[in-house]
Design a protein around this nucleic acid. Structure first.
Lengths: 251, 251
DNA sequence: TTGCATAGTATCACTATTTGATAGTGGCGC
DNA sequence: GCGCCACTATCAAATAGTGATACTATGCAA
């Protein structure tokens, strides 16, 4: 950062302002931006002003608080055009969603997290699981494990030892040995099933979208309620269709 | 811009890099970025480098071309949390989508354009109409007109005279008088129906999501094929449910 | 209403940072 | 193997961002 002569720190500070907004900080005053970014008061003022002028931040005239603008959705739109997998996967996901009436997602690996890039939610899906762009530590998700399982044995071992884990529910599995075993099972089975990891009473089933080199960079994942199905029923009832959908995307 | 002492031009240049990517420019080399932004070669190099280091741009090691990164989806995620209308609308849209099996969208006004902030596509929906964040001139859409129709008469007149129009199909209506009439009809009817405006053989039906002040900032819109339905059938078959969905969101 | 505290706005001299010219490197097609 | 073009790296010059400070507006309490 410091000794990088090509690094433009002013731009980085501007991005820091954008990233100050999250689930629990949906609008921010100048003071709050200052606190959350650690930048100088004047800098925050000028950077936020610039982002506002450039249409990246909206501002409520009464409260003077800044908010994310519609431009944030436009960026997503342009991301979608840039990702060839999205274009191939989307029609197949829609097909699956309408045929089965169940939530289906496209998850992509992004360093040691997975990011949901397409989501076709059904009525029972809660908000955070309905909207694209959510990042979750790869190791605690079925999608992350099944993607990981397609890489080399050393990489699996290394990832299970070092990638971050985080508890979302009391039942979130944070024991790295168990995660490793489960990932190896995924490698052998070609799918991964988890329970209660992100949300209680949620069963998650994922299959890899394997590239030409045999390594997956993405996965298809469905969410079901454990009140409705047992894990075995989920596998029986949905795995074949999920594999078909994956094959359709890759074919 | 120039005589704005609070304006940080370096940040603005960085944003210009981000906005150089669109439907037809899904990945860009340094040279192309230079051309599209009009910035200096060195500036582009440093700004793009910074965006890469900060995770806003990916780079293919072989071709050295820059691409939008997953971070663009994360921004959308955080936008969604910041928009209270989205949270209220999403479950209702899902309900409608699953009940009717037809494409339904949430469109919001954004200056003189509308932006699709939620989309629940069905199988027949083409790619550009399936992904969120698309911006379209408000006047050529049913959603834009029905939102406009809830504002004052002067504003309607002014908007129909000055807001941009753009032809998407040979049948896109660009005659401002006809657009004005259609918007007045929308005001009287409480809904707006268009044909072949964005896509041939597409019927679009929109109803406003009216705020406390009687003015709409958003609309619900559905798309149907004119090969399957006549405009009259669309109104008969879908308008009541669409109005119910809108009422559910506002209630 | 008055007064106080807090948040937002505006100004400006200083200098750190960006700039843009230039030179160096690597890759690809001919 | 040669030459072209794109990308990378360097550095002196000066522009443009900084941060301290002062000013104004807002909201809350007495």
């Amino acid at each position: 950062m410091k000794q990088d002569s090509l690094y433009v720190s002013t731009l980085a500070k501007g991005l820091k302002i954008l990233r100050a907004f999250d689930e629990t900080h949906v609008s921010l005053s100048l003071k709050e931006l200052q606190k959350r970014t650690g930048l100088e008061k004047s800098s925050v003022q000028r950077l936020a002003h610039t982002l506002h002028v450039e249409g990246m931040l909206d501002r409520a005239p009464d409260t003077r608080r800044y908010r994310p603008s519609h431009a944030w959705l436009e960026l997503a739109y342009n991301y979608y055009w840039s990702d060839p997998l999205v274009a191939r996967a989307l029609p197949k996901l829609i097909e699956f969603s309408q045929a089965k009436g169940e939530t289906i997602n496209l998850a992509q690996i992004s360093q040691d997290h997975i990011i949901y890039s397409l989501r076709l939610p059904n009525q029972r899906t809660h908000f955070a699981a309905s909207i694209v762009g959510r990042r979750v530590p790869a190791l605690i998700t079925a999608a992350g494990r099944v993607i990981l399982s397609t890489t080399g044995d050393d990489e699996i071992k290394n990832a299970c030892a070092h990638w971050p884990v985080e508890s979302f529910t009391p039942k979130t599995l944070t024991d790295r040995d168990t995660i490793f075993e489960n990932t190896c099972d995924a490698r052998d089975n070609g799918f991964c099933l988890t329970r209660d990891q992100i949300l209680l009473n949620e069963i998650s089933l994922a299959v890899p979208l394997t590239g030409n080199d045999g390594r997956a960079r993405a996965a298809l994942q469905i969410s079901l309620s454990s009140r409705t199905y047992t894990p075995e029923q989920v596998v029986d009832k949905f795995l074949p269709a999920l594999l078909d959908t994956a094959a359709g995307i890759l074919g």
